[in-house]
Design a binder for these strands. Structure first.
Length: 390
RNA sequence: GCUGGGAUGGCGGAGCGGUCAAUCGCAUCAGACUGUAAAUCUGACGCCUUUAUGGCUACGUAGGUUCGAAUCCUACUCCCAGCA
């Protein structure tokens, strides 16, 4: 079980300062939840992940079900022991893979359409959008049914069925502190009718998850509804009315950032104030301030970690690309304003050399720094909320 | 000195008569990445031109054969291997 204590609510925004108390420790919110899909923050040991000031991680039900299988994790004493992470953990339900291995894969889009993709595909709202996903349509490699989803394993092509009951059962075996309902994350290309039908399914699954859960883990219900205001509000009202321990806001966020913040506003008004709100899969640096101001308590995002592996360092000077040769002659620390161990001990020329030489340590150093940097930026925001300045 | 092999864009290396400004890899540059099929993907990469089914210069050097040569022939220069 968890307890959520709101320490302070901002008077100038919807932001709030809180404590999310779990049996594995307390999370100060607002807070980034780094992604540990396969029970690891890629490139880091759990000890290193802790040193980045990360307070809580999120692992993935679908991927851990495939490999190594929840039985292995359970017999190891649960996820915390398995990965030697003593702090709080979340598991995502596998609902995102309904999108990422489905329509996301088919059309090559993420959950926010880029301007280029918008031009190419339309948004699903326009009548003439040739590529919008309509009611009854199925992804190429998945079959989405009323009971759950038949996946094609990306590892070996095997058929895998995951529904609300299966997801909860797996998440109980994994043993995270906070688990999520099994949902369908919809595509930004889904039209109104598709989204509405999907929403009803997600709602039905949410009830099954709630009913099927036997453990004392905290269960968060997930709000869907895409970019459509009435559906978002309907979903928030419905999911918000159920006795969940907290709420996830998931799904697509249209084709621009303004809409994203607007959508969060629609949803949050309908959710019980006293419970924690988790925004699923959003967390670029430029988004973080906005979503916290909109009232988000926790959010997970692959940006600090994946971008690191692609050579990007987020610093007080902006985003630096360590795939570029120019840093070979740069003897400055990665970020002179950062106090992480990478910035204290290593210089840009060396990190650049390692990255360009294909050395895995470069990925570790950049991952470590990026997480530390993100966590630090968010700590500053918490400080501002405390002082009434955010 | 003789015999054999070779010289291709920043590098490595394909091509062996036309569809070749030249496969591919590396390097370089640019872009993408938001509940991780992601240490990944996309694009540019002789010069000029905003674009092209555009122009120019190119496959060691100099000639030649041919309607047409990176590709065939001759000479030269250099490199490599084996033998003296």
């Amino acid at each position: 079980m968890i307890e959520f204590e709101i320490l302070k609510e901002s008077k100038i925004s919807q932001a709030r300062l809180g404590l999310l108390k779990t049996s594995h420790g307390i999370v100060e919110t607002p807070c980034l939840v780094p992604v540990a899909t396969q029970a690891v923050v890629k490139t880091l040991t759990s000890e290193e992940a802790e040193q980045t000031k990360s307070q809580i991680l999120i692992a993935n039900t679908f991927h851990l079900h495939l490999k190594p299988g929840e039985a292995i994790v359970k017999s190891a004493g649960g996820l915390h022991k398995f990965m030697n992470w003593p702090k709080p953990l979340m598991t995502d339900s596998g609902g995102f893979q309904v999108f990422s291995l489905g329509f996301g894969r088919d059309f090559g889009t993420g959950k926010i359409l880029t301007p280029h993709q918008k031009l190419r595909f339309g948004t699903g709202q326009e009548e003439k959008s040739n590529y919008s996903i309509r009611k009854g349509q199925q992804p190429k490699l998945l079959k989405i049914t009323g009971d759950g989803v038949f996946f094609t394993s990306p590892l070996n092509g095997e058929k895998i069925f995951l529904g609300p009951k299966e997801s909860i059962k797996i998440q109980e075996s994994l043993g995270a502190d906070i688990i999520f309902t099994f949902d369908e994350c919809t595509s930004p290309m889904a039209d109104y009718d598709y989204t509405k039908k999907s929403l009803l399914k997600t709602h039905c699954w949410a009830k099954i998850c709630l009913k099927g859960k036997k453990s004392d883990q905290a269960l968060f219900g997930i709000v869907q509804g895409g970019k459509f205001k009435d559906l978002r509000k309907e979903s928030a009202r419905f999911i918000g009315s159920l006795p969940f321990d907290g709420f996830g806001i998931g799904g697509e966020f249209g084709d621009n950032k303004k809409i994203m913040v607007e959508m969060i506003n629609w949803v949050i008004k309908e959710l019980p104030e006293e419970k924690p709100r988790h925004l699923l899969g959003i967390g670029r640096l430029e988004d973080i301030a906005k979503i916290i101001k909109a009232g988000i308590d926790t959010f997970d995002c692959i940006v600090p970690t994946r971008y690191a592996r692609h050579g990007a360092a987020f610093t007080s000077e902006g985003k630096l690309d360590f795939a570029r040769m120019k840093f070979l002659k740069d003897k400055k620390p990665l970020d002179k304003k950062c106090s992480c161990f990478v910035c204290q001990n290593y210089r840009r020329n060396y990190i650049n050399h390692l990255f360009r030489a294909g050395e895995i340590t470069a990925l570790k150093l950049l991952t470590f720094h990026n997480l530390y940097f993100f966590n630090n930026e968010i700590a500053k925001i918490r400080e501002k909320i405390k002082k009434g300045k955010f």
